[in-house]
Amino acid sequence: MSEGQVKSKFDVQTIETTGHDPWADFREVEKLSLEFTQQYRHSLGKYSKFFIELENKKFLATQCGKCEKVFAPPRPLCPDCLDITIWKELAGTGTLETYSVIHFSPGTNDDVRQLETPYVLAYVLLDGASTLFPHVLKTDLDSIEMGMKVKIEYTDEPVDHPIHLMHFVPLEDE
């Protein structure tokens, strides 16, 4: 390297070619590593009451006054009637309708907790609801059965996103 010449810190690869190559003059390719982070002021909008009440260990759905459908996750607007819904508390018990045991998860964002694999993503029909609510089911993997009864368990630990204030656990026979 001669005086004054700056050594490139970048990665340059020369692509091998064989035979007639129309791109023969363009076979050196340089690559650089770039980082890009974003910060959001993420609004939970008219869904907020659901998350606020999770802190009080209450599970809220919404109900349409016209068709009486009960939405969990909540919808502020009934998509069938376009009627503004009202909040309705559910007991927090339900039935496992389908699920997947996740062995590989890319994580969500670097700034929220990573779940330890394997874990269960459960779709639960909460008693009184018309739709399925997806969340983690904490249980012994061998004991999972389609149709099993589950309930919401709340946590007091600090969380990064209020949806993490809850998860599902098996409903023990009482």
Binding site: S100, T108, L121, P134, H161
Partner: peptide
């Protein structure tokens, strides 16, 4: 995979640990 996950419903599917493979897996299990 994080970028693909952004095409799920962020607050309700992605933040609960959902992945696209898992959504499809839950569907085929049903």
């Amino acid at each position: 995979n994080q970028l693909f996950a952004l095409s799920a419903d962020f607050d309700w599917e992605m933040m609960v640990g959902g992945t696209y493979t898992a959504f499809y897996a839950a569907m085929i299990r049903a």
